[in-house]
Design a protein around this nucleic acid. Sequence first.
DNA 1: GATGAATGAGGTTTCATTCAT
DNA 2: CATGAATGAAACCTCATTCAT
Lengths: 211, 211, 211, 211
Amino acid sequence: MKRKTNKLTAKKMDKRLRIINAAMNVFGEKGFHKTKIIDIARSARVADGTIYLYFHNKDDLFIAAFEELIEEKLQNLKKIIAAIDDKLERLLKFFSLHIEMFTQNPNIARFVTKELRQSSEFYLKYPTFRPLQEYINYLKKLCQDAIDASLIRSIDTEVLVIIMIGTLNFALFEWSLGNSNRSLEDIKEQAVNIIYRGLKKGPAPENTEDE
Amino acid sequence: MKRKTNKLTAKKMDKRLRIINAAMNVFGEKGFHKTKIIDIARSARVADGTIYLYFHNKDDLFIAAFEELIEEKLQNLKKIIAAIDDKLERLLKFFSLHIEMFTQNPNIARFVTKELRQSSEFYLKYPTFRPLQEYINYLKKLCQDAIDASLIRSIDTEVLVIIMIGTLNFALFEWSLGNSNRSLEDIKEQAVNIIYRGLKKGPAPENTEDE
Amino acid sequence: MKRKTNKLTAKKMDKRLRIINAAMNVFGEKGFHKTKIIDIARSARVADGTIYLYFHNKDDLFIAAFEELIEEKLQNLKKIIAAIDDKLERLLKFFSLHIEMFTQNPNIARFVTKELRQSSEFYLKYPTFRPLQEYINYLKKLCQDAIDASLIRSIDTEVLVIIMIGTLNFALFEWSLGNSNRSLEDIKEQAVNIIYRGLKKGPAPENTEDE
Amino acid sequence: MKRKTNKLTAKKMDKRLRIINAAMNVFGEKGFHKTKIIDIARSARVADGTIYLYFHNKDDLFIAAFEELIEEKLQNLKKIIAAIDDKLERLLKFFSLHIEMFTQNPNIARFVTKELRQSSEFYLKYPTFRPLQEYINYLKKLCQDAIDASLIRSIDTEVLVIIMIGTLNFALFEWSLGNSNRSLEDIKEQAVNIIYRGLKKGPAPENTEDE
DNA sequence: GATGAATGAGGTTTCATTCAT
DNA sequence: CATGAATGAAACCTCATTCAT
């Protein structure tokens, strides 16, 4: 039954996906405002009018592209992480996967790092637009699990999320602009090392000792 | 009265500064593309044509505003930090000052966090536009100094910069959107704690030991 | 049941008529330019492409709808009036019938009063589009008959047509917009009275006499 | 004083008027929807953007043009008619002047006859748009005055207005399309004759008597 | 015949920039 | 120096029309 209904829908889906993918690329490359609908249309090999058969307007397309990207990535992430038992490893894996996922191409990285900010104007226009919320919530839960399992110190998960997402975000952004002369892999390894040390249990560092 | 206080050069400086300040505010509030030149002109109480006597175009004004903001903040920072002897305290102070400085009003915070990304399009048009470079370099130096003084571990300063700037940036961004229910002060304290622990000298954490 | 009643030709006729009727209504309601082909298609419960099987284009549909409406109404009119002997009564009946016919619903009234003008652009594109010509000619003939029968004064029938059609048209237009607080019936009665007095035989009015 | 303030304004007014006049002509020629802003701009010898310095949008321009035309004509009318004592002559003069005024060129005639209808869509969007209301009210008053002076029968002025405006409107419309082979002057004379006879005091015509 | 997904030309409107005053 | 009226390029979106199924 599913196969039947999808026969006709296949092409439609195909076209919708082509538009979404084109949108992510072009938005990521040029930014929301410099992206013209016709750029996306050409990239998706459809007429510009066609885009309006699938999306109400440019804003709608942007939001859909963003949400579907995040949604898809989050599903990926969850599936892989669910297979890991250790709560701490899960957290580390999150770091690695995040970077892996968003570096398929620099446009995607730019899309999630740059446009995430750009799109703050959407927060006003579309108050329900919280594309990262679910993502962040998931990360919070991973942190809380690690804390509950006594694998890391009991710290404010909101702060931890800011450190982790902020670091990942900026690292990807710099990478997408070609600004860094370290490999992302290197950067990740070291960042994980530093942050993990900052989280592990044990006595707080004492300045007096050092002096 | 007005005529008296406004000496010729003062008047000119005054006008340029008024435009820059207006630009920072309006760009921060509305974002680059939604900001109209006439908005800035009105906010600075000049005619729109006048802006073109001081800046070549909208891009130029944006860049000038950004650079002058960063430049001014960096001078501030350096002056205050120069008065501190301890290399580690300097690093901590940097964190605090950064947040203090860019939270004078949310528009300024948005300007530096959101528009920094937005402006990646300027990297293409104006390859020399690296507004944060000096700022980042200074932070790198502070890190290196702390390492050289054996106050923190010998880590890659580039990575450290990414963690610190990324964290600060994201914390400010979330704050400017009113998304966080923690105070910035709280977040800063805890972030510093975590990152500092991650940096302090001593043996690496061992998972097996902890369990 | 539906399949049975819809014989092949009947079905076709049915569809064409359904489109024409839908067109009259939607054109009347929204005006030519605000009417979208898909509006008519939906109203006629056909696909939009289907309309192009029966009409060359939107203009063609508009003209066809208009002409068929007028044609149908004129046939009605002629049939009823043919049954009347008195040439004067025929003229009066024309007045009444015209109003009756075009007030079946306000959309139809708007269609014939408003779009008649709107469509003056068709006069350029389709010089043969003279939808009211036959109608007007018939009225002229009725007038001429009344004159020949010495029932009214011998006046220029063209002028009379302008008075009658102009009056009817404007009365219907105002009614269709809901602008008048008199009933159409009232207006008609009084208008007929005035115009008929203006037509009847006898000495011209003399101002001096009346005073 | 007035002269001074008008010095600068002169050019502005000139441009505004040029746009209004161009608008009346082009709207009259092509109709509202087929008229493109750039058509009006070219006709007024300004850039298309300039039009938006004087009018909010196309609708606004249309309404302004219509209202200013009617307003101007009505002032004319009132001034001339005020100089006439006889209440009946006033009514007759109204008829003549109306035709004279709106036949300066066919575009103007089309503008007032065709677009008056077209613009019924404006009644919905702009409920206060009643361009002819004042005009009609003035005609009603003229009628009432003639009735009060016992110069014509006591008839419903609303009906009379419908006859008069409807007739004038249709006559002008047909003339503007070049459809009539009578001169407007001829038509007017005869129409006035018929309508006046219909209005004069005296016994109603009796059909039976005539036969 | 019937469908409706796809097309793409076209128009209103905005706004950065210029330049006469 | 300062002004702000004028310019005109550019882009989102609509919708009549086509054509593969």
